[in-house]
Nucleic acid binder design. Structure first.
Ligand SMILES: [Mn+2]
Ligand SMILES: [Mn+2]
Ligand SMILES: [Mn+2]
Ligand SMILES: [Mn+2]
Lengths: 231, 231
DNA sequence: TCGCAGCGTTAGATTGATCTAACAAAAGCC
DNA sequence: GGCTTTTGTTAGATCAATCTAACGCTGCGA
């Protein structure tokens, strides 16, 4: 139906809009960086996707998804996250090894397969990185979370997801002994250089804002990240 | 490492040589029919595969696999049959639906994945169609079997595989109530038109040679298809 | 052994996805 | 408002995989 390339473009636009708060369009250069191709390549491709009715776009304008494009992009994300869950839960892959393989599996085209896999995994809502798995109809349960970077001092949080899937990040995450569902207490944020002091596993740790801004947390008590009244 | 196309060519050459008795080379036209492309396309591709050291070939000559080409082709077959086993055993797909999906999954490139999948499935030796699954090192346990078409009258056989993966064939197979591991008794072969009379599930059935030549059997008593002394 | 049918190759074109280099528009800044 | 930086487009090229149409080999049968 759609080529790998087309699927990758739609998936990327979904990730840069649907899964990005308060954003519903994206520029050509941004997409080029994200997809690791040159802007000229993106210009050609968005013309094609517009011709197919999958995105809204005009010369020198931003790109946004049509209803159809959104559904197709979400379907790729759905497959990606289901396969990640399979690799982690069933094949016991470490969670930092699954993303790369899922990049290939996400393009396997069979809704029957996707739905049976979903059932086989017990209809998971979130993948091993804590990201929401879109349902077959395109609906999503957005987790109610905030970045560790923006956490409030003295508050206790629970890690529910990470947003960087690079090997470097995930290895560091592992090496620090962190895990999804672990609790961390935010101690203090250094205003000068942004370094964060956190309490984890009884030890105090200093982490960079770059690291912290890739970690999603919820309030450890009520489970809500925003508008939390648990102090 | 290798493109889908290259993998498909190598897999096809494996199927037309390694898995074909007494054949170790194949012509351009044969390959073209098998791959459903034009001969000119195959000519181009075999030049490329030769340049990469994967096949032996010269102008106007036949194609055969080098050791490296053989291994790569077998690896694709291995992945194909492991995925078919997964789809059938774990996701409960009917065995006539799995081939098409495995055509896509066979190209996922991760030996770690392949080997974990193998373990997850319990290191199966044969796929749901009864075909041997090549091992990671390229070795194969060739099943000792014959075509139902060539079966000896009055002998009792057990179906262990089919060689046609088309929907038409598999549906007919299902509709007749046949299954892998079922026993059938060969009654008589009509010399004039080749029709076979078999006894299956207490009923006598007449089947065409075209149908029968896609069904592999072994002797129901000793498990050996050739040189069987069980009369 | 010669001719021809079938097998295989070549040349030239197409399509999709990508690039570089040069250029054009839009945005941002004084 | 005009200059500069950022953003985006165009033209032209490349590479892989395919096709069609025309042509070249080869081996089999008479
Ligand atoms: Mn992808
Ligand atoms: Mn994920
Ligand atoms: Mn294939
Ligand atoms: Mn099979």
């Amino acid at each position: 139906m759609f080529s790998f390339t087309e699927e990758n473009y739609l998936k990327s636009i979904v990730q840069l809009t649907v899964f990005e708060e308060g954003v519903d369009e994206v520029g050509v250069n941004r997409l080029a960086v994200y997809l690791d191709v040159k802007p000229a390549t993106v210009t050609d491709m968005v013309k094609k996707l517009k011709a197919k009715g999958l995105i809204n776009y005009q010369r020198y304008g931003k790109v946004s998804l049509t209803e159809e494009g959104r559904l197709i992009g979400l379907r790729v994300v759905r497959k990606h996250r289901l396969w990640e869950t399979f690799l982690h839960d069933k094949l016991k892959f470490n969670w930092d090894q699954i993303h790369e393989i899922a990049e290939q599996l996400e393009h396997v085209n069979s809704s029957e397969l996707t739905n049976r896999l979903d059932a086989f995994l017990g209809f998971p809502e979130f993948d091993p990185h804590g990201d929401a798995i879109p349902r077959a109809d395109g609906s999503i349960t957005m987790p109610y979370r905030k970045l560790l970077n923006e956490a409030v001092p003295d508050q206790l949080y629970r890690i529910i997801a990470v947003s960087d899937n690079s090997n470097e990040f995930l290895r560091l995450f592992d090496e620090m002994g962190l895990n999804i569902n672990d609790e961390v207490q935010m101690l203090v944020r250094n205003d000068y250089d942004g370094l964060l002091h956190i309490l984890f596993n009884g030890k105090e740790r200093t982490i960079s804002p770059k690291f912290a801004e890739n970690i999603y947390v919820v309030c450890a008590k009520c489970g809500k990240a925003k508008a939390c009244n648990c102090n």
